[in-house]
Simulated scan of single mutants.
Amino acid sequence: MKHIQITPAWYFSDEAGNQLDSKLFTLLEAVHRHGKLTRAAETVGISYRHAWNLLNKWEDFFGIALVDLERGRGARLSALGEKLLWAEQRVIARLGPQLESLGSELNLAIQQTLEGVKPVLRLYASHGYAIELLPKHLHELRLDLQYCSPREALAALHRGACDLAGFHLPHGEVGQRVSRAYRNLLKPRSYRALRFSTRRQGLMVASGNPLGIGGLQDLACGEARFINRQATSGTRVLLDGLLAEAGLSPAGIRGYELEEYTHSAVAAYVAANMADVGFGVEAAAQRFGLGFVPLALEDYLLICHRRSLAEPKLQALCRVLEGEAFQAAVAELPGYTPDRCGQVEGIEALLPDL
């Protein structure tokens, strides 16, 4: 099957037209991970000489070293090398979900032209690492996956623009408050919920947690630099709910007004030492080598019309969700469990206040 994948690219250039080689970012990431230039070159798939020449070329371009090499101590990124690597990772983290959504649209249009119109499962969902896995497992279905905020996803289901809306609901009292906020978009008589996964959210901190951050109360004094999620995200709703539950004011948090648009982007921000702490899922923290302070559990749910459950495309989805392969993939994600994945429940069972 032909498949479009859209990836971001950016370049440094000078007046002579020289442009930064994209392979340099891969090499810098490998040096950061392995601490040895020989191992980094092997990982990237180039010779040691090629790696050495690549670094020399771009050190001449910038006029400063990108990697510090010390006999007996291996290799480590210089300050500029770190800035370049984290800039690349922030670009990918911030734009990834939007580009995946665009790629989904383009793939669908091209495949329908090549093979004719076939049934499509339209999923509007809050972005997450588990939901990212679905396209790789839905071999029987054409999936139109669009990432958006939870409220936008439920609104799309309400107006018939999608078959499924994915959003996350925190456990406990915070979850009850969140459910009331979605009251006008959930129809207990008409809708049903598919269990998808349970995940941990909390504070992402530098490796080793050098500031000793143990909870939200450590943010309220304004000492630690914080990076937030955008106001429309479900993760921001969860954070605000936890702050309210603890009696803490956002006004005391240094950087509360600064926003990023994905879990990965928040993690990359902290990993680049642009902030001391962010809020998001454990999987993002581990992916960027950060420490994690767990604060909350939440269920990720897929909401659909009750009548849609009899359709072949929804039945095919349920078979995938209940299958060992998909559940094993979810279980490998740090902080995720495929709790009752694929199980159908009434809205009232999940949101008793409705």
Rank of each mutant, 00 (worst) to 15 (best):
P150Q: 08
Q112L: 04
N56H: 13
K57L: 12
A75T: 05
E324R: 14
M1W: 11
F279S: 06
V117I: 13
E15R: 10
L66S: 07
L85Y: 04
T43Q: 11
R180V: 12
A75G: 02
G214P: 04
L185W: 02
R33T: 12
G234M: 01
L102D: 01
P294I: 06
V237A: 07
K57H: 09
I64H: 04
L321I: 07
V91I: 15
Y191D: 15
V277R: 03
D14G: 09
C221K: 14
Q112P: 00
G35I: 01
Q19Y: 11
T337P: 00
N18W: 05
V67E: 03
Y269T: 11
S190D: 10
Y269N: 07
G234I: 05
I131T: 08
E311P: 04
D163Y: 01
E324Y: 12
A275F: 07
T7V: 15
A325E: 15
P338T: 08
S249L: 09
G234E: 03
E245L: 12
E88R: 13
C162R: 05
Q343Y: 11
D21T: 02
A130S: 15
T38A: 14
D218C: 00
E322M: 11
G252E: 02
E223A: 07
H137F: 15
G35H: 08
Y147K: 05
F196M: 10
L99D: 08
L169C: 10
L297H: 12
G116E: 03
L314D: 05
P294R: 09
L333T: 06
R199F: 15
P119R: 08
D21P: 06
L238W: 02
D144W: 13
L69K: 13
G208A: 10
A316R: 09
I347R: 07
Q327L: 10
G17R: 09
D163P: 01
C221I: 11
G128K: 09
P210C: 11
W52K: 00
A51P: 07
A156K: 09
S47E: 05
A283M: 05
F12V: 07
H34C: 07
S308H: 15
G214Q: 13
A93V: 06
L297R: 13
Q315N: 10
K187S: 13
F326V: 11
H139P: 00
L133P: 01
L69S: 03
E257L: 12
A125S: 15
N184M: 09
D14V: 07
A9T: 13
W10P: 00
K118C: 01
W58H: 02
G252A: 05
L354A: 07
L219N: 04
P170M: 05
A271E: 02
R229V: 01
Q176P: 00
H32V: 01
V178C: 00
L108Y: 08
R183V: 06
K187V: 03
Q343P: 00
Q89C: 00
V266P: 00
S190N: 12
C162I: 01
Q217C: 00
M1K: 07
E70I: 14
G63V: 06
E173N: 14
V344G: 03
R307V: 13
Q98A: 14
E59H: 06
